[in-house]
Design a protein around this nucleic acid. Structure first.
Lengths: 213, 213
DNA sequence: ACGCCTTTGTGAAAACATTCACCAGCTCGG
DNA sequence: CCGAGCTGGTGAATGTTTTCACAAAGGCGT
């Protein structure tokens, strides 16, 4: 197994979601063609993506929904639970906490930190907000989520690294500097808006393209 | 000018952000190398991205910060204002409204809709929440933002299309079907978590790759 | 004016990702 | 058992994006 592209991983997430739907509909098998149709991609892409990890289908039949779901769950690492520390109990942080979908996928937010003295000690969604200085490796966190204002982001990232997280999900619109052995994903909503703005500004209007969408 | 890739547009957003910082620091000129350094990409990438739109630099000197900023603003369509309709006044919707950064870039949320009768008529960040049935082309919206629960997303998308928006920003983790002449961007936080999970599960730990990050 | 240093813009090459096209394996009906 | 009809896996071809590498252009000191 050489190197898996980020695009492939993102599509696996999508397949996983589709498989949940399909399972709920009571289907036992699904073909790469049907799986692709729901995503607006080609069936060859689906088969190629899956082939990086093994042979999960049966020729003439397609993929067993339950089996493929289990396989993808394993590939994505969703067959275990992840301890998540959330930093920033503002609007975005609260929204994340309130969304139960993450816990369903194995992501347990087990601690919340904030810099604002007014928020420390308050309870958000069952968790007591702690000062950022309390952040330490004692928490045993796998993943840190940065939902702070822009100016605090790098500092918080450093603190999370020091606390031993292995991955960071960053909602601040800034490039963070962290050691290469950590994983970093950034969700930049401003960028999404600007990407839309660009698409709408172009003469002739938007045309669907092949990138992530 | 052939076709601009989504990656290039996303990087332009980044450059724009960096230019703001650099301008605030009082610098007049910046080289592609310096611009690249802050993003963790190569200087050739920066020059190539910009070259799709023109020649904005001066050999031996680099780019004039103010000038390049103005150019990128024009390219991204940030030199005008966009009327945005927000659907869903829950956690994510409120978080978006509270974040003033969007208005700064020209995105004005001018109306809020929700399906929940309990929320209709309440005021969120100065806007009165209206029932989704009121959504119509009379609003003159350019962009619609979907911040509803998953199950309502497609229905809301249809309503936004009917109301004449030209672009949709979707926060629901589902593929939406909309006419090809509209632009669609999806922010799927579950996918970001899963992508992290995958990276952390791989034997040998994560290694920085060339994709988006 | 000249040489030296810096930096852009850009073809060409390399790396990477997607699609094509076809073989192989499976079911089903007869 | 055989043929028809699907469907997965995969090497090869195609398409796209990134990186390389270098000519051209500008500033500066002398």
């Amino acid at each position: 197994m050489s190197r898996i592209s980020e695009s492939t991983v993102r599509r696996l997430s999508h397949y996983y979601r589709v498989l949940e739907e399909v399972a709920a509909e009571g289907k036992r098998m699904i073909s790469s063609h049907l799986l692709a149709e729901r995503e607006g991609i080609t069936s060859a892409q689906v088969r190629k993506d899956l082939s990086y990890f093994g042979s999960f289908g049966r020729r003439g039949l397609g993929y067993n929904v339950e089996h493929l779901r289990t396989e993808i769950r394993g590939i994505l690492g969703l067959d275990r639970r992840w301890r998540v520390a959330l930093v920033g109990a503002g609007h975005i942080g609260s929204a994340l906490l309130a969304y139960r979908g993450f816990a369903d996928q194995g992501f347990d937010v087990v601690a919340v930190y904030d810099a604002d003295p007014a928020r420390i000690g308050t309870t958000v969604d069952g968790l007591v907000v702690q000062p950022i200085a309390e952040l330490s490796s004692a928490g045993g966190y796998d993943i840190g989520v940065i939902a702070t204002p822009l100016r605090a982001a790098q500092e918080v990232a450093d603190a999370l690294v020091a606390a031993g997280v292995r991955g960071i999900l960053n909602f601040a619109p800034r490039k963070l500097r962290i050691p290469a052995e950590l994983a970093l994903r950034t969700v930049d909503m401003t960028m999404e808006f600007e990407s839309l703005s660009f698409a709408l500004s172009k003469p002739g209007g938007p045309r669907r393209r092949r990138g992530r969408e």
